[in-house]
Simulated scan of single mutants.
Amino acid sequence: MQYIMTFIWTLILSEMVVYVVSSMNGAAFHFNTGVVISIFVTILLFVLTALIPNDPVEHH
């Protein structure tokens, strides 16, 4: 479930970014651009969370 919600939130946020940037540039809005960005960001988030260790930190 967390993977689906992560993708949904990245999709919503990337579509907002694509809409705002395309409006500021005077370009046409393309839904597919936001989908591609959200897929890339979702995969990047999953890879980064897999690389970060979950071990407790020892106090010195």
Rank of each mutant, 00 (worst) to 15 (best):
35 V>P: 03
9 W>Q: 09
7 F>L: 12
38 S>V: 06
16 M>S: 10
33 T>H: 09
17 V>K: 05
32 N>Y: 06
32 N>L: 12
21 V>Y: 08
45 L>M: 11
13 L>C: 09
18 V>K: 07
47 V>E: 06
36 V>H: 02
13 L>F: 08
37 I>G: 01
4 I>D: 02
36 V>A: 12
19 Y>V: 05
21 V>N: 14
44 L>N: 13
47 V>I: 15
25 N>R: 15
47 V>Q: 10
9 W>R: 10
15 E>T: 08
32 N>S: 13
10 T>G: 03
34 G>V: 00
35 V>G: 03
14 S>Q: 02
7 F>E: 00
34 G>S: 01
12 I>F: 14
26 G>E: 09
11 L>F: 10
14 S>W: 01
6 T>N: 14
32 N>C: 05
46 F>R: 04
29 F>G: 05
26 G>L: 02
5 M>Q: 08
35 V>T: 06
5 M>L: 13
12 I>Q: 01
15 E>G: 09
31 F>D: 07
16 M>P: 03
4 I>L: 12
32 N>E: 12
4 I>R: 06
40 F>W: 13
29 F>R: 09
13 L>P: 00
34 G>I: 00
43 I>W: 03
8 I>C: 11
23 S>L: 13
9 W>Y: 14
15 E>Q: 08
38 S>W: 04
33 T>M: 06
15 E>A: 13
9 W>G: 02
25 N>M: 14
24 M>P: 02
14 S>H: 09
31 F>G: 07
40 F>T: 14
6 T>Y: 01
6 T>S: 14
39 I>K: 13
23 S>F: 08
14 S>V: 00
13 L>I: 14
38 S>Y: 02
11 L>Y: 04
28 A>P: 06
20 V>S: 05
10 T>W: 06
25 N>E: 14
47 V>N: 04
30 H>I: 02
40 F>V: 15
31 F>H: 07
45 L>Q: 10
18 V>G: 04
5 M>P: 00
46 F>K: 07
7 F>I: 01
37 I>R: 02
20 V>F: 07
8 I>E: 03
17 V>T: 13
32 N>P: 02
19 Y>K: 11
15 E>C: 11
14 S>L: 02
19 Y>R: 11
9 W>T: 11
22 S>G: 14
21 V>C: 07
28 A>D: 15
12 I>L: 14
45 L>D: 04
24 M>R: 10
26 G>V: 04
42 T>F: 05
43 I>G: 14
20 V>R: 01
43 I>A: 15
45 L>A: 11
